[in-house]
C-alpha cells in the first residue's frame, strides 16, 4: 500500500514538474530558445509571491493575480530588450546570456532575501486531505495537479485554436515568411516569453506553497523541467505532462528506497530513457 501511495504522490508531484517544463517547452517550440535562467525565474516568482502576499496580507493563491501579470510583463520586456538581440543561427549567445541572467537573479535574490529558506503560507488548505479508502490525498497536491492539467490544456488550446497560436506556429515554421504576413517577429517572441513566464509564475507560487525555497533553488527546477520535456518528447505538451509524472514517480519511489536517492533516481530514469528512446516517449509526429 505504501508503494501505491508513493506512486500516487509522485504522479501528483509530476504535475508541478510539468508546469516547470511547459514554459521551457513553449519558448523552445516557438523560437528554439533554451532559457538557462528558467529555474531561477520560477524561484523569482515564488519570491515575488512572498513579497506580495506578506506585504498585502494576501493568501499566496490570491497573489497569483499579481504575480502572473508581473512575470509576464517582465518576460515580454526581457525578450524585447535583451534576448531578441541574441536570436539567430548561433545558439551560444542566448545560452550564455540566459546563463548570465541566472547568476544575476540568484545573487539579487540572495541580496534581497538572504539565503534563509522561505515558504509561502497558504493557510489550512495546505494540510487538508481526503481519504480514499486506505489512500490519503492532500488537497493541495491534487489541486496543483489539476491546475497543471488545466494549464497544459489551455496552452494546447491556445496553440492550435487561436490566432496567437497560429502566429506562434507560423513563426516557428518560417520566421521570415511569417514577417511577410505582417507578424512582427520581435513582438511574437516577446509574447511567447510573456506566456512562458506567466506559466512559470503559476509554477513558482505552487512550488513555494508545497516546499521551502531559497535563492539557489532554481538550478534543480530547471533540470527537473528539462528532464520532463525530454522524457515526454520535444514539442509535445501532453507528453510533457507524462514526462513530469514519470519523473515525479521515479523520485518518490527512489526516496522510498532511501531518502538520499530521491533526486538521483529521477536523473537515472531520465538518462535511461535518453539511452533507450532518445526522442522521448511521445515524440511529436509532424516534427
Amino acid at each position: 500500500m505504501d508503494w501505491i501511495n508513493a506512486i500516487i504522490q509522485g504522479a501528483l508531484l509530476g504535475g508541478l514538474y510539468a508546469m516547470f517544463a511547459a514554459g521551457l517547452s513553449l519558448i523552445f517550440g516557438v523560437m528554439r530558445l533554451v532559457n538557462i535562467a528558467h529555474g531561477d525565474l520560477i524561484v523569482l516568482s515564488a519570491y515575488v509571491a512572498l513579497t506580495t502576499s506578506v506585504g498585502l496580507g494576501l493568501n499566496p493563491l490570491l497573489a497569483l493575480v499579481i504575480v502572473v501579470p508581473v512575470m509576464a510583463g517582465f518576460g515580454y520586456a526581457l525578450q524585447r530588450l535583451v534576448l531578441n538581440r541574441t536570436m539567430g543561427d548561433d545558439l551560444l549567445p542566448p545560452l550564455l546570456v540566459t546563463f548570465g541572467l541566472s547568476i544575476i537573479i540568484q545573487n539579487a535574490l540572495l541580496m534581497g532575501y538572504s539565503a534563509d529558506p522561505q515558504k509561502l503560507q497558504a493557510g489550512p488548505i495546505e494540510t487538508a486531505s481526503v481519504n480514499l479508502g486506505p489512500i490519503t490525498l492532500g488537497v493541495m497536491p491534487v489541486m496543483v495537479f489539476a491546475i497543471a492539467v488545466a494549464v497544459i490544456a489551455g496552452l494546447q488550446w491556445m496553440f492550435y485554436r487561436t490566432a496567437l497560436g497560429r502566429a506562434f506556429r507560423a513563426t516557428s515554421d518560417r520566421q521570415d515568411i511569417a514577417q511577410l504576413m505582417g507578424l512582427n517577429r520581435a513582438h511574437v517572441f516577446g509574447l511567447a516569453m510573456a506566456l512562458s513566464l506567466a506559466v512559470t509564475a503559476i509554477a513558482g507560487v505552487f512550488l513555494g506553497i508545497r516546499t521551502s525555497f531559497d535563492p539557489a533553488a532554481g538550478a534543480s527546477r530547471l533540470i527537473f523541467g528539462f528532464e520532463a520535456v525530454i522524457i515526454g518528447g520535444l514539442g509535445n505538451l501532453w507528453g510533457t505532462l507524462w514526462g513530469g509524472i514519470i519523473l515525479g514517480v521515479a523520485q518518490t519511489l527512489g526516496a522510498k528506497i532511501n531518502p538520499g536517492y530521491q533526486i538521483l533516481a529521477g536523473h537515472i530514469v531520465f538518462l535511461l530513457i535518453l539511452a533507450v528512446r532518445p526522442r522521448g516517449l511521445f515524440p511529436r509526429m509532424d516534427g
Binding site: V34, I36, L91, L95, S220, I223, L264, H267, L271, L274
Partner: peptide, 21 residues
C-alpha cells in the same frame, strides 16, 4: 543525443548525478 542547448543542460544532469552519487 541531445542537440545544442539541450546538450548543455544534459551535461548539467550528468554533473548532478556525479554529485549525488
Amino acid at each position: 543525443r541531445l542537440r545544442g542547448a539541450y546538450f548543455a543542460i544534459g551535461t548539467w544532469v550528468v554533473a548532478e548525478v556525479f554529485r549525488l552519487t
